[in-house]
Design a protein around this nucleic acid. Structure first.
Lengths: 145, 145
DNA sequence: TCTCGTACTGAAAAAGTTTTTCAATTAGGA
DNA sequence: TCCTAATTGAAAAACTTTTTCAGTACGAGA
């Protein structure tokens, strides 16, 4: 939950990548957002930190960040163009239908379920993606007003 | 598992939509495929049944089919442009990484898991998407050759 | 701190996907 | 069979994503 810019910067370096101004801006944009951002939104938001930030660079940087598991694509109901920072390890997301706030679920108890799926289908399970939609605490409150 | 063309045709009619040649072709294409098809693939495959089938019509028809839950978008690892026929009720898919064969998991035991998520996050869970990747029986065999 | 090679960048263009518009066609009830 | 509204394909527009390329800036090593 408490991901800092410095930790992200170090992760990027550790992956053998340079820490450039545009990349800093992209990390800042992702860090500042509570909801998944599309490449275009990341560019817009990131331009506060690096005025020249190009969309092409956003795409290229997301590709890198995804390859080293620093960012995770989120496929929500209304499209599949969202990215959020990833907590290391296997996680899933709950996205608020109203305000799009995202909470990560660290630690994933789907093991039993996947075992049953494997047994029933004969497939050797290698990976899975789970997205959960709901209404966050704050929005449940608002509903009552 | 045993969805027939006639059942699909009736579902479409019941939704208040006309059963046209292009739409028949799209249903046939989906029915004949064991894996999720992109709009472009549906067009190509559907042209065996309706030579003039246009891509625009595929998009429009998928929109209708999705709105009446006859088709389900599948977000796989390599993109999010796949559609498969939906078995009535809540289902999830296992997609083979090698041959892209798809098996539906009918009946979904995620209830407990989702309850725990709700308790831990304070979110009121409204919906979820789960995609599972694996290697199907046939491809596991091939691997040994 | 300075130099230098390479990874990285933005702009432009290309490629690919999805949506809109519009005149012509077709399904299916009367 | 006739009629009308729903539907269609083609063309064009609007987006999104990828590729190309010449110039730039990061950061390792002196």
């Amino acid at each position: 939950m408490t991901i800092t810019f410095d930790v992200l910067a170090e992760q990027l370096r550790a992956g053998g990548h340079k820490l450039t101004q545009p990349r800093r801006a992209i990390l800042q944009a992702l860090l500042a957002s509570a909801k998944p951002l599309s490449p275009a939104e990341i560019q817009q938001s990131g331009q506060a930190f690096c005025a020249e930030l190009g969309l092409v660079t956003v795409y290229r940087t997301l590709e890198i960040l995804e390859s080293i598991d620093m960012v995770r694509p989120v496929h929500v109901a209304d499209g599949c163009h969202g990215y959020v920072l990833a907590t290391p390890g296997h996680t899933h997301h709950v996205v608020c239908e109203r305000c799009h706030a995202v909470v990560e679920i660290v630690g994933c108890d789907l093991g039993d379920f996947l075992d049953r799926v494997a047994a029933r289908t004969g497939y050797q399970i290698t990976d899975h993606w789970l997205e959960i939609a709901g209404i966050c605490g704050a929005c449940q409150q608002e509903k009552m007003d």
